[in-house]
Design a protein around this nucleic acid. Structure first.
Lengths: 211, 211
DNA sequence: CAGCATCCGCTTTGATACTG
DNA sequence: CAGTATCAAAGCGGATGCTG
């Protein structure tokens, strides 16, 4: 990208990460840790291969990510954020927070990856009753399942099915997010096609307090 | 901008404000409040007039800014952030924080406006000894002067000369920022061309504690 | 003069095809 | 798997011209 040519820290930040796709590449690396080229391609539906290669070069030159040699079994290169790249986490958090209300509009035919739920889940959910035994909620939204889990007063999300879920939610990303955020009641959502199995109480356990 | 087509809050945020120049327009409105078209042009050196008009339309459509009719004396339209637009302040803050280290590289022939100092000043400086009487430091960096002022334990910057400054710093933006941040000593900076007049103690009063 | 719209050459992006 | 090559389409930057 051509530089803005302004001696201002916001402009200089955008010189480094303001290119189309750049921040989404950082998002993938923040969510997934070190990734192969193909993993990135899969996590960034819509990107062209030449652009991914270009951006990886530029982000490497800017000190935001680096290439590592993967441990013996695989023999491929991995792209990983540098410490400087990981410092973009607060930017990503605020951007995700600001963008959250935009998720209420229908997904339509937008692409979706369950890992993307990690951001909103850990930003907005919290354990309302940390003294009670932890709960697990499994989310099935199309591609891979994702499990959210309370523990130490926090709520964490990680990929994979739960071994013993208190509640399983299956449906479109929009319905699942609506129910988790509290924007939709479980009844309304299931009338719209959400399936659930287990204890609905697990939901109130993690939902944000107000609204 | 073409949408990323991803059902993710970061991607949707970037759909709205990821265009070239969009966030810098928001920066200007956050720093200056409601602005005329020409004010924006002046605060965004390098932007083409058709792009500014385009972006203002798009940002208006996205609910980020609106047009107001200016009060009687002037008869022109003013562009102002909506509440939704003002919620971008945390994004701007984190972006400015992340970009701050990039300010150590020389400005070269980059454009500069003294108002842009407001962001780093209020982000990084603080009043180290709030019990003592407040101090004022006037900054002269090329265009208009800017004054920083302690009060209620905070440090605020606003445009204009100080009526009774404890210290005046004159020089390139890079030198002034270097000295304020503590990256440069006052002696080193004045060897490099920074001029100062008044009490250097005012500097240690506001400089960040560590480093 | 403030607030754009139009035109034009250049750069960036997107889609697909191809290669070590 | 991890890219490079190619090319059309879209976006950008700069200049200029129009309108109240």
């Amino acid at each position: 990208m051509r530089s803005y040519g302004q001696y201002c820290s916001v402009a200089r930040a955008l010189d480094a990460i303001g290119d189309r796709w750049s921040l989404l590449i950082v998002r993938e690396l923040l969510l997934r840790g070190p990734c192969r080229y193909t993993d990135l391609l899969g996590g960034l539906p819509g990107i062209a291969t030449n652009l991914l290669a270009d951006r990886l070069r530029e982000l490497e030159k800017a000190g935001i990510l680096g290439r590592e040699q993967a441990p013996p079994p695989v023999a491929t290169a991995l792209f990983a954020l540098t410490p400087r790249g990981e410092q973009l986490a607060p930017v990503m958090r605020e951007l995700g927070r600001w963008g959250a209300p935009l998720m209420a509009e229908p997904g339509g035919d937008a692409a979706f990856r369950s890992r993307w739920l990690k951001l909103p889940v850990e930003l907005f959910l919290s354990d309302q009753t940390p003294d009670r035994p932890p709960v697990q909620i499994e989310l099935r939204t199309g591609d891979e399942p994702m499990t959210i889990r309370t523990g130490d007063g926090e709520v964490r999300a990680h990929p994979g099915a739960a071994e013993d879920p208190d509640l399983v939610l299956s449906g479109t990303p929009q319905l699942v997010i609506g129910v988790l955020s509290g924007r939709l009641g479980l009844g309304d959502a299931s009338a719209d096609g959400l399936q659930y199995d287990g204890d609905p109480g697990a939901l109130t356990r993690v939902r944000p307090p107000a609204a």
